[in-house]
Every structure is written in structure tokens, then in C-alpha cells.
């Protein structure tokens, strides 16, 4: 069985040595069933142990291994290598500072993520003796899709607005805020409103829909953001008519 070979052009960057990223070429044997991540792991293990990347679960749920493959943001453990030709370009995710090689800086995202208060807000949250809250299947279905985000950051790499406006809170974090706002158990929409409608919030989204296109988990952040905009408008209108406390 003659092993098939492919050439990988991989972005390398070591701030201790390089002033700008460079590209390195690796020609390696590949297996028909491989995902893109298998090739990166092979290079790391067998060819060049100085290559740095992140990965763990290899089953499309930990969200570590997002990279740019031939210019597109991909979760590499889920992406079949057979979809690509003899030469494949692998680079770090776009729109993030590079830490090293294929590893990008996530701190800014984590700050945005925390900013939208992604937790249940209500007074009796620790009243365990009362037992679980009830939630209907319909109520669960409202948040289900938006609770599937694995924080892989592909949507930030694809979002044109993030590229132009680094203050934009961005797709995953806004979708998560929507997920909590829409949770029948949550009472925190008022607390999140200023963040969602303020600078960098939902109105910075231009509805390019790129985030939903690249999402490997079908979360559809673009729809979540549009709904938040709409709900923000409703709240404004209600307040305008009857200037009391809003809520949902």
C-alpha cells in the first residue's frame, strides 16, 4: 500500500526569534480517514517537535483545535483531510493575536465572555431544598441551540466586524447572553441590557452571518444577536409607552 502524501504549509511564529510569522513546509504521509488535526499531530510527533498547537478531545466538543485551513476557520478534529488537495495551508485563526505558531491569544475573548454575565441571575438560586425548577420542553427548546457553543472561536475568526472593531463583544458571547436571557429560569435580562445594547453590543453586528456559516455546532449566533436587537427594541418601546421597569 503506497502511502499518500500531502504537503502542509504551516504558519510558524516564535516571538523569541521571529519578528513576523513565517511559513514552513512539511511533506508527510497521510491516511485516508485522517482529520486535519491528525496531520498536525503527526508533524508535531514525528517531524518537528517545536511546532505548537492546541488540541485535546479530538471529538469536536472541547473546542481547542480551531485553525485556519486554506483560509477558512475550521475545527480541525472535525474536518476531513480528504476534502483538501495535495497542498494544505494551516494558519492560526484570523482576528486574534498570535501567541506562537498555531496558538492564538484568547484573553480578550474571555473578558468579553465574562462581561455578558453568562450565569443564572435570580435571588433564590441557592435554595436547593425547593428542588429543581420546572422547565417545559418548549422552554428548554428555546435555549437548546444557543447552549451548544463550545467556545471554539471560529465565529470570531470569521466575523468581519471583529476584524474592524476589536471592542465588539462578538458572536459567541452575545449568543450566550441571549441563551441566559431566554432561559425560563433566569431573571437577569435587565442586568445584561446595558451591556448588550451599549458600545460593542448587538447593534455593532452588521448581520454578515459569517458566524453562523462557520459554526461547527449549528449555534447560529447571528440569529441570537438579531433576536436580542429586537427584544431590546421592544423593551425600549414599552418603556417609552409606560416608563416602568421592563423585563421580559
Amino acid at each position: 500500500m503506497g502511502a499518500q502524501k500531502k504537503t502542509f504549509i504551516v504558519t510558524r511564529f516564535d516571538p523569541d526569534k521571529d519578528s513576523v510569522p513565517r511559513k514552513e513546509k512539511y511533506e508527510i504521509p497521510v491516511e485516508p480517514h485522517w482529520k486535519v488535526l491528525d496531520a498536525v499531530n503527526y508533524i508535531k510527533d514525528e517531524v518537528d517537535s517545536t511546532l505548537s498547537h492546541r488540541c485535546s478531545c479530538r471529538m469536536a466538543v472541547c473546542g481547542s483545535c480551531g485553525m485556519s485551513v486554506n483560509g477558512e476557520a475550521k475545527l480541525t478534529c472535525k474536518t476531513a483531510l480528504s476534502d483538501y488537495g495535495d497542498t494544505v495551508e494551516i494558519a492560526p485563526l484570523a482576528n486574534f493575536p498570535i501567541v506562537r505558531d498555531l496558538v492564538v491569544e484568547l484573553e480578550a475573548f474571555i473578558e468579553k465572555f465574562q462581561k455578558v454575565k453568562p450565569w443564572i441571575i435570580r435571588d433564590d438560586v441557592n435554595d436547593i431544598a425547593a428542588g429543581p425548577y420546572k422547565q417545559s420542553v418548549e422552554e428548554l427548546n428555546v435555549i437548546k441551540q444557543f447552549s451548544m457553543c463550545i467556545n471554539c472561536m471560529l465565529c470570531y475568526a470569521a466575523c468581519p466586524q471583529i476584524g474592524l472593531n476589536p471592542d465588539f463583544i462578538g458572536p459567541a458571547a452575545l449568543a450566550l447572553a441571549h441563551r441566559y436571557n431566554e432561559d425560563s429560569r433566569d431573571r437577569g435580562a435587565d442586568e445584561r441590557r446595558d451591556i448588550l445594547l451599549g458600545v460593542g453590543g448587538t447593534y455593532d453586528c452588521t448581520f454578515a452571518n459569517e458566524c453562523s456559516e462557520v459554526c461547527p455546532k449549528d449555534v447560529d449566533p447571528a440569529i441570537a444577536i438579531q433576536r436580542e436587537k429586537f427584544l431590546g427594541l421592544i423593551h425600549w418601546a414599552r418603556n417609552f409607552v409606560s416608563p416602568k421597569k421592563g423585563g421580559r
Binding site: L140, Y180, R185
Partner: peptide
């Protein structure tokens, strides 16, 4: 108690028709 706590913290547990976990 611990799984109830997770429920209060928002874990999207699957539900029965009557809304219980």
C-alpha cells in the same frame, strides 16, 4: 442536592412532559 444545584445554575437538563427533570 448536587444535581439540583446544577439545575439552579442553568444546566439544560432534558425534561419530562410535566417540566420535571
Amino acid at each position: 442536592k448536587e444535581l439540583t444545584r446544577l439545575e439552579h445554575w442553568g444546566c439544560p437538563w432534558s425534561r419530562n412532559e410535566d417540566g420535571t427533570v
